[in-house]
Computed example of a mutant assay.
Amino acid sequence: MLLCCVSLQDIDTDKVYDAFVSYTVQDYEFVVHTLLPELENSFKICHHERDFIGGEWIHNQIQEKVEQSRRTIIVLTEEFLNSYWGMTEFHTAHAQAMRDNCARIIILILGDMPPQEAIPDEMKAYMSMNTYIKWGEKWFWEKLKYALPHPPSKPIHEFPME
């Protein structure tokens, strides 16, 4: 369940991407061969391998790409929790969600749930207030796509303005 206290349509009009995907190198195969092919049929996904600019500061690019994305998908594993860059991406996305007063992070559990003592308090708090999705569970793709942004509704009938 993603609840927002402000209208996402208002604050997301300038966003380039529907989602930024954050993961570790150990999860590369899953992300590139399973997650991205399914999502990129319907959503514009920011993938650092393709969308980061070579030679630019990584911290700056993380900040920029998270700000340009409507959601951040965290592929959560124990390796992710031990990854400097993964946790930097989580903290950046969490700060953006706090600034926007909106749940922008989608946590996707890949494999076993990491031990509770390994999960930082900030992430535990976020997970206690927002639904996370586990790879392999029933309706996984439907739940993930539901958590991603939807295009604005179009009126059933359009009447010409005179």
Rank of each mutant, 00 (worst) to 15 (best):
R71S: 12
F80L: 04
G136Y: 08
N101F: 03
K134F: 08
Y146G: 11
L35F: 04
E158T: 14
D100P: 13
S153R: 04
I62P: 14
R71K: 10
F80H: 14
P120R: 01
Y23C: 13
F90S: 00
P160T: 07
D112R: 09
Q116R: 09
P120T: 08
Y146L: 07
F30N: 12
E64G: 07
F159S: 14
G86F: 07
K65W: 08
N82D: 11
F140Q: 08
R71W: 01
V66T: 07
F20E: 03
P37Y: 11
L110G: 07
Y146F: 03
E117P: 00
F90D: 01
V25M: 11
S83Y: 15
P37D: 11
N101H: 03
K15D: 11
D27Q: 04
E142F: 11
R71L: 06
E122Y: 11
P155H: 14
V31D: 10
Y84A: 05
K145D: 00
A93C: 01
I45D: 13
L35Y: 08
H91Q: 10
A97L: 05
E89N: 05
D14M: 06
Y126K: 00
E137F: 14
K44C: 09
E49A: 15
E122P: 00
E64T: 03
A125R: 09
P37C: 09
E67R: 03
C5D: 02
R70L: 04
E89F: 04
K124L: 03
F80C: 02
R104L: 07
P115L: 01
E38F: 09
F140V: 13
T131D: 00
F43A: 03
R70K: 03
V31I: 14
F52C: 14
W139R: 14
T131I: 11
T34C: 08
S22D: 03
P115E: 01
L76F: 05
H91Y: 03
D18R: 05
F43Y: 14
N60G: 10
H150Y: 08
A93K: 03
I53P: 01
M123Y: 10
F159W: 08
L144E: 12
W85G: 14
F30K: 00
I133P: 12
N41W: 09
D18Y: 15
D14Q: 13
S83F: 15
T13W: 11
S128E: 06
F159D: 13
R71F: 07
I109Q: 02
Y28H: 08
M98H: 00
H91V: 15
A125I: 04
W57M: 13
E142N: 12
F140E: 05
F140D: 10
P151Q: 08
I11G: 13
I107K: 05
L36N: 14
I119S: 13
I133W: 12
Q68F: 01
F30T: 07
L36P: 12
W139L: 04
I107A: 10
L110W: 05
W85C: 13
Y146D: 10
I53E: 15
Q68G: 05
G54L: 14
K145H: 06
L148T: 00
A147E: 08
G55T: 04
D112T: 05
E137S: 12
V21D: 07
D18K: 02
A97P: 06
E137I: 06
P115F: 04
E162Y: 15
